[in-house]
Structure formats: structure tokens, C-alpha cells
Amino acid sequence: MAKAKLDKEKLLWMYRMMLLIRRFEERTAQMYGMQKIGGFCHLYIGQEAVGVGTVAAMKKGDYLISAYRDHGHILAMGTDPKPVMAELFGKATGVSKGKGGSMHLFDNEKGYMGGHGIVGGQIPLATGMAFAIRYKKSNQVVVCSFGEGAVHQGAFHESLNLAKLWNLPVVYLIENNRYGMGTPLERASAVWDLSQKACSYDMARATVDGMDVLQVNEAMKEAIERARQENQPTLIEARTYRFRGHSMSDPVHSHYRTKEEVEEQKERDPISSFQAYLLDKKILTKKMADTIEDEIKKEVMDAVKFAEESPLPSLESRFSDVYA
């Protein structure tokens, strides 16, 4: 683990949030199996340290935008799990009123700008928000998360060029989980070290262990500072791994990766390693860990209950929110 430079409260928040995301998604998988949730559903399990380490470095008023593997991001931004689960259930009480689903979670009030389904499509949007921040001379920062699959899209390259050209306060975060669906990075990318892409645009860059929440947090704090103080963008690659399939319809391991590989990666579990670190530093006790586990279990069950009991969207509601 990287050395913690954070107060106890923040460290415990990080631990708690990673665990909430993990338990929320384990329950999500179960509900998907029971056909309470439909469509494409991409779990973040294994990658929690990236989203949580990132959000822990952000301030109120900053924006986060990400791709379709978004449950972890919206929860980390502070949205109540209840309307998130309700959205997955396609209920009227969902964050997007049942019109978005798993891939399109949004919470504008909390600064979570979505949940985007087209690979790389959110990267120009993030760049535009950063443009607006400069235009309005406000002091916010945008963090834009995407998978390593998105760095091959034109949208990524056009955005990085504009961000550097115009000095925009944005941090681009590659969550490299090694596979674009079933295609490993080495079969998709001409380079292995993805933050090298920043060099083309003379942009600051960093590479971190995405399984280490403290390392992610440190790199993100530095990049956010650079954005806020100097209006300079950064490209960060966080090397992580997804423990589940690409989506719920993809098995954990199949011809594209072996069971052994997945098991080996699970040894790097970001939550258990962080728990061990906190126990070792006596920031967390076994008893506290048990209490947190119980609280989270209840919080997730309450979310499921809320989703379960919420009404379906009215049929008339399909006509609203098309135009302002």
C-alpha cells in the first residue's frame, strides 16, 4: 500500500465506500439472476479502489463522468443507494426515473454527470464541462473515467488535444482492466504503457496501481491540484482488473482469460488489502469492520426493498423529458 497522508475519517470513508460498492453489486448480480434487473449490466467488482480513490480527491462542486460500468461511480459521489437500485429495477423512483437503467445513471446535483453507453462518448463531454468551467471562471475540476478500450477512439484523441490546447481543468482517468470485452490490451493497443498517449499532447501523466486506493488517491490529488491551480489536464492510467465478466451475460472466465488468471488477480483484491492495511495501522478494528459490514448489508437490503416496493414508471411518463 502507498503511505496514507489522509486523516482517519477519510480512510474509513474510503474503506466503507469500497465495501458498499462491492456488496451493492454482489446483490445486483443476484437480482439480475432473478430477472429483477435487465439489459446490459456491467459490474465494477475488482475496480472499486479506482473510483473511490478518485472521488476521495475531489471537492464538492467538481464533476465526475464515466462510462457504462458506473454503479461504483455514482455511489462514490454520494448518491443514496436506494434510487440507484431502483433505477436498475426500472422503477419510477430511480435516479433517471427508469429511463436510463444500469448504463445511464445520473445525479446532476451531486456532480455525477453519467453513465454513458458509447465507448469514449463521454470524453468530449467532460472536455466541454471543463471548457465551461474556464468560460465561467469557476474553480471546479472535471474527472473523466473510461476503460482502456476507449483510448483507441477518436473522441479520446480529439479531446486530449483540445484540453491541452485550451488549458482545461480536466483529469482523464483510464481504468485499465485489461480487457475491452474479450479483447486483451495487447491485441488492441500498439503500446502497453497507456499514459504514453499523453506525450502526443505534451500533457502531464501518471501510472498507478489501480488496486491500491491510496496510490490512486495520491495521483488523483496531484492531478486535480494541477487542474485547479494551473488549468492543466492530466492523463492517469490506473491498472486494475475486473473480477467478473464484461457484463452479466459474459462468464467470469472463458476462452479469453483463464480461471487461474482471475484467481491470481483476486489476490490483489483492493478491499481486503486495504482492510489489512487499516487493521495493521489500528485505524480499523475487527469489531469496527464487523459493524461496518452489518451496516452496509442493511443499507443494501434497504435499497433492494425500496426498489422492490417502488412503482413502475407510469406509461404517460415515457413522453416526458424528451424536450425541455
Partner: peptide, 26 residues
């Protein structure tokens, strides 16, 4: 030049920049 902005030839990029800026009030 802060309100009349020349772009490089990157239609996807600057269209998205416009939309992103509209999401936050421009």
C-alpha cells in the same frame, strides 16, 4: 476570442465540447 472560438478540424470533439458545456449551463 473567449466567446468566438476557433477549433482544430475535429468535428466529433468540438461538437461534444459544445454539448458538455451545455450540460452545465452554457
Amino acid at each position: 476570442a473567449s466567446r468566438v472560438i476557433d477549433t482544430p478540424i475535429a468535428e466529433l470533439g468540438f461538437a461534444g465540447v459544445g454539448i458538455g458545456s451545455a450540460m452545465v449551463g452554457l
